[in-house]
């Protein structure tokens, strides 16, 4: 059954769709090197890096923006 007017009443429910499976390269964040500039958090198109700098691999699509924008090379892309 489709809801009336196909309205979706579960906010944020795309979380059911684990886009991590799209990834071919995986970002590895080295917290030792990290200077907490928050660039990666800001620029991640998935919003999947939290304020403790943990990457949620369920959703990370492996775009590589975080690696590219890290000023201290604390993030490395590795082949899955």
């Amino acid at each position: 059954m489709v809801s009336v007017g196909a309205a979706v009443k579960e906010p944020g429910s795309t979380r059911k769709n684990k886009t991590g499976s799209w990834r071919t390269f995986k970002p590895i964040l080295d917290k030792e090197k990290c200077i907490e500039c928050e660039n990666c958090i800001m620029f991640c198109p998935e919003g999947c890096i939290n304020k403790d700098y943990d990457i949620d691999y369920d959703y990370c699509k492996g775009c590589g923006i975080c690696e590219e924008e890290c000023p201290v090379k604390a993030i490395k892309m590795e082949r899955e």
Partner: peptide, 10 residues
């Protein structure tokens, strides 16, 4: 207070 999405893509 009760977020819904109206006009979705089916």
């Amino acid at each position: 207070k009760r977020p819904m999405s109206i006009g979705t893509f089916t």
